[in-house]
Amino acid sequence: MGEVIDIAEGLFVAEPQPALLGGRHKATGRIVFPCPTGTGDYEPIRLPHRGTLWSWTVQRFRPKTPPYAGPEDFVPFALGYVELPGAVIVETPLTAVAFEDLKIGMEMETVLILFNEDAEGRKIRTFAFAPVGKD
């Protein structure tokens, strides 16, 4: 297994368990994802590891490149919004679940997946959500 790089800095942490990094608006307390940079209005916050599926769909055709940077050999993938209790609803790829098993309200947890390789052969790691108890 070669070198692994994250798809972006400051998006998630792996330990002690995978979690997304959101931003809390210092004045209002409102939480967003990802954490906005540059203004200083937001402070990074570790988002809950688990949540419930808020909505979902399946991407059945290969999105246009750019911006899509997934494998040339396209495999349809599920994506959705997961509500992280008391924090925020995040848009995310969904993994380790059959399309016919997707159901609004199901319990999901944050996982980290290897998404593709870059031009130098490094594996690109990104976040996703999987049904609780699977990864």
Partner: peptide
């Protein structure tokens, strides 16, 4: 950029 790269754009 990552938002488009993973296929959510």
């Amino acid at each position: 950029d990552w938002y488009g790269e993973v296929g959510m754009m």
